[in-house]
Amino acid sequence: MKQITTKEVEKLLIKGERLNIVDVREVEELQSGKIRGTLNIPLGLLDFRMHELDKSKEYILVCRSGGRSGRACQLLDSHGFNVINMTGGMLEWEGEIN
């Protein structure tokens, strides 16, 4: 499984890179903040909503600590998606949130 650190994601965003970030936390968890521009698809709904994603794009998956996003990466990878797990999740995120 491909991985990226929170610092690497933050640097890419600061440089103006357009990233496709999917946050797999539950809706109520987003109240603590999320990375600007992320799409929220809770892990439990990913099977039902993966049709919203484009297999030609690369996605960075995010959760609270990196565990659920790792499982989401395995699921999406098994369906032919190009995915990267953000290790450390939002617990390690020091960048801007909204």
Rank of each mutant, 00 (worst) to 15 (best):
K2P: 15
Q3E: 15
I4M: 15
T6M: 11
T6N: 06
K7Y: 11
K7S: 14
K11N: 06
L12D: 11
L12N: 11
L13Q: 10
K15E: 13
E17D: 09
N20H: 12
V22L: 03
V22C: 06
D23T: 08
R25H: 07
R25D: 04
E26L: 10
V27A: 12
V27F: 14
E28L: 01
E28G: 01
L30Q: 04
R36L: 09
R36W: 09
T38H: 00
T38I: 01
L39E: 01
I41Q: 01
L43G: 01
L45Y: 06
L46M: 02
L46V: 01
L46Y: 00
D47V: 03
R49P: 00
H51R: 03
H51K: 09
E52T: 10
L53M: 00
K55G: 06
K55V: 04
S56F: 08
K57D: 08
K57F: 05
V62N: 09
V62L: 15
G67H: 13
G67V: 14
G67M: 14
R68W: 04
S69Q: 06
G70H: 13
G70I: 09
G70C: 14
A72Y: 05
A72K: 02
Q74F: 15
Q74D: 15
L76Y: 12
S78W: 10
S78M: 03
F81H: 05
I84F: 13
N85V: 14
N85M: 13
G88P: 10
G88R: 11
M90A: 12
M90S: 12
E96I: 04
E96Y: 12
E96V: 00
